[in-house]
Simulated assay, not measured.
Amino acid sequence: DPKVDVLGLPDWVKFIFLDIGLASIVFTCILGQLTTQVNASHMMIDFINNYFAVFTLYTAMTIEFIGIMHCAYLIKNILSAVSGKPILSNEPPKTGFTFAFYWVRVLMSCAILSFCVAVVFTALLAGDTAVSVKYPSISPPLAVVLLLFFMGVVGTLEAMQIAFFSVAKLPPSQRGTNWFGSKTCSLLFDGNGKNLPTFMIGRQLTVVCSFFLVGSFTSLTIVPGTGNNIFGVSDTSQAFLNYGFQGAVMTTILASIMWQYAASAFPVTFLNSLISFILLIVALCLEGTGICGACWV
């Protein structure tokens, strides 16, 4: 509510920091991600030498074991076949029960992902998402386009991170094969390569900003018990979906993991992309503003 007083700030400041969400974006980016990443890069052993790191590891392993994200492995296998690059693994070939259990989870994950995508796009077209509440001027078809756009931005930035570190090991003559690839490499690796960590800071800010926006497009505003539950699910299921499970699954796979696998298979292709070059400039400019400079303190 613009009429509510917040520290005596003018309306335009409240609009930028609270309505658009810049305050939450910067807070999350610096304290929730960049600060820990910077500290971990300098004190790797100390950072994992605690019980919370163990708890985080086992939580992540449990989620992976359940198989909600296993369709990402199917995407990885497809990209490996297309690129002709074998998947290097220390695990023995899957046989018997292990083989069956793996593919059951892959199929389950594909079904879950399909359901999540259906929920998000059905709600978007019906105007039952948070973006329709926050920005009523955005029509449902435009909301779909914007969701795909921001997911593409996040995915490209995720891919760029993988691609840049992959080509860093290559000779300079093999890094970029067109004008955009050459310019991208010049920006990143010329001199002492200081622009690579700079890009990582700006990239993280852009990703967090995009994810906050994507969250508005994937969060449901359907009130359970009103007879408007999506696909006619129960009130309990609708209440669960209102927490954003469908958005988390869809964006994690389609806006992050899939693009990382693609960049691993085709790093030079992403390096040569005009979109990658533009996003690199944007990330460097964002970092240059100093808005995330506190993470270095």
Rank of each mutant, 00 (worst) to 15 (best):
T198M: 06
Y73D: 14
T226P: 07
D235Y: 03
T289P: 03
I30G: 06
L220T: 10
F212A: 02
A255L: 04
F217G: 05
P197E: 02
E158Y: 06
L34R: 07
K94I: 02
I16M: 12
C209S: 14
V297F: 12
I291Q: 03
L147V: 09
N50I: 08
Y102Q: 12
G176N: 01
F99V: 08
P92D: 01
P197A: 10
E91G: 14
P140W: 03
L7G: 10
Y261Q: 13
V4G: 01
V233P: 07
I275F: 15
M160C: 06
N90E: 10
W12R: 03
V214D: 09
V119R: 07
F149E: 00
C71I: 15
T236M: 08
T35P: 04
Y261T: 07
N178A: 04
T289D: 00
T56V: 11
E64I: 13
A126S: 12
G181M: 11
K76M: 10
G176A: 04
S273W: 08
I201L: 13
F231G: 03
V131W: 00
N242R: 10
V154H: 12
F52H: 08
T221L: 01
F164R: 10
G293F: 11
R105Q: 10
V268Y: 04
S166C: 12
K76A: 08
E287C: 09
D11V: 15
K76E: 13
I63E: 05
I278K: 03
F189D: 04
Y51G: 11
K183N: 10
F212R: 04
S273D: 04
Q204I: 11
P171A: 04
L79V: 00
F17I: 13
I45R: 14
S41V: 09
F180A: 15
G21P: 05
G202Y: 05
K3R: 05
C29H: 04
